[in-house]
């Protein structure tokens, strides 16, 4: 196991959305803009990194009968910290992400990595795994958020800067609304699976 390939694995093969298909609820809900996607990913990354580190560091001390409650205590603690920090220092983003910040507690990506990875690997590799999965989560959320924001508003505005602007605004409001999330993720998932099937057929 080398650290770099472990990091890349979180973006490609074990990508939380297209690989593990975990954490779809926040993915569908908050990807109305690139800005929200970055905010959600940052919150999730913070929780995932610290949860993985603590679960891994305590893994020999955690009695297996009560490991899930302990994971939840660790995760909920860091989610509450993110919740308080974001409310105090980024109020507009806190208002936009709303209930999905407290819901990181039950985001299956985080408890999934605690159970499947951090509980079995050392602190360093758990940290790398968290970084990789977080990066994968961020990239996919930004991609979905970007597609929805461009089609819905004709431009991408992130933290007050217009990053990209179409000459004509397609103004497909549906893309900002919940159906847009399902359509986007469905099309992307089909493309990813098609590529994967092609690779398999080649004997990959």
């Amino acid at each position: 196991m080398d650290p770099l390939s472990e990091y890349i694995r979180g973006i490609t093969r074990d990508n939380p959305i297209f690989g593990l298909v975990l954490g779809l609820c926040p993915t569908l809900a908050v990807t109305t803009s690139v800005e929200n996607a970055i905010g959600m990913s940052a919150g999730t990354a913070f929780v995932l990194v610290f949860a993985n580190i603590f679960v891994s560091a305590l893994r020999k001390q955690i009695p297996s009968a009560v490991r899930l409650p302990i994971f939840i205590i660790i995760i909920a603690t860091f989610v509450s910290i993110v919740d308080m920090l974001m409310e105090a220092y980024f109020p507009p983003m806190y208002a936009a992400l709303g209930v999905f910040i407290p819901l990181i507690v039950v985001n299956c990506v985080i408890i999934g990595r605690a159970e499947a990875y951090a509980n079995k690997n050392n602190v360093f590799y758990s940290f790398i795994d968290a970084l990789g999965i977080s990066t994968g989560f961020l990239l996919v959320l930004m991609l979905i958020g970007g597609i929805r924001e461009i089609l819905g508003t004709g431009q991408i505005v992130t933290f007050g800067y217009t990053l990209f602007s179409l000459p004509a605004n397609p103004d497909v409001t549906t893309m900002i609304l919940p159906p847009g999330a399902f359509l986007t993720i469905g099309v992307l998932m089909a493309i990813v699976n098609y590529q994967r099937a092609k690779k398999m057929a080649k004997g990959g």
Binding site: L58, Q61, I62, P63, A65, V66, P69, I70, I73, I74
Partner: peptide
């Protein structure tokens, strides 16, 4: 087990 839960 209870002790560990309390500590955490």
């Amino acid at each position: 087990v209870i002790g560990k839960l309390v500590l955490i």
